[in-house]
Amino acid sequence: MATGFSIVDPEEIPKEQFDTCETMVRKLTEPLGAIELRVNQVLVDPGEVTTPHTHEGQEEVFVAMTDGQISIDGEVHDVPEGGVVRVHPDTVRNLCNHTGDTHVWFAFGAPPVGSVDDFGAYVLSDEEA
């Protein structure tokens, strides 16, 4: 069983190249001990484009740590620093950078469990109840 929490400094995780493109990624899932969520820090240098893709049965959420760009079904969207993007499993998405600065993103993905209306009850400790 994983511990109850973990703290990771992404800068301490080595960068790796994605299998399908030149873009660098820091894979944070294992260092965090995450078992039901995939977490990556994606570093998109000027001129880079990640591979357009979908995920079978998995929504993905991207958080822009800097100003960034994401292509959704072939249309590029500018996302401000701190902006959050949710992408449906069947929607084609890829990160891109048509600017002069490196874009830094966090990408979160989890397989579906339950639904938005029924994702599980909150469990409060005896002290909070």
Rank of each mutant, 00 (worst) to 15 (best):
V79R: 09
Q17N: 10
T20Q: 12
E60T: 10
V92G: 07
P31R: 04
G109R: 15
T50E: 02
L28H: 09
V39S: 00
T99N: 07
G83F: 05
P111I: 06
P52C: 03
Q17I: 04
T66L: 04
G4Y: 14
E30V: 13
L124H: 13
P111G: 13
P52F: 04
D45P: 00
V76Y: 12
T66C: 00
E48V: 00
E127C: 02
G120C: 04
E12P: 01
L28T: 01
Y122Q: 09
E22Q: 07
I70F: 02
A129W: 12
T50I: 00
E128V: 06
G57P: 09
V116S: 11
E30Q: 14
D73V: 05
Q58F: 03
C21T: 04
P80K: 03
D78I: 02
E59F: 12
T3D: 01
F119Q: 10
L43E: 05
V76T: 15
E12F: 10
L37N: 08
E16A: 12
A110Q: 06
E59Q: 12
V39F: 09
V116L: 15
D19I: 01
H53V: 02
E127W: 12
V113T: 14
E81C: 08
A107G: 14
F108M: 02
V104G: 02
E81G: 04
T66P: 00
T102H: 01
H88K: 14
E81L: 05
P14K: 08
E59S: 05
E56C: 05
G109K: 14
T29H: 14
P52G: 04
E16S: 11
V116F: 15
E11S: 11
K27L: 10
I7Y: 13
V39M: 10
R26H: 14
P112S: 15
E12T: 14
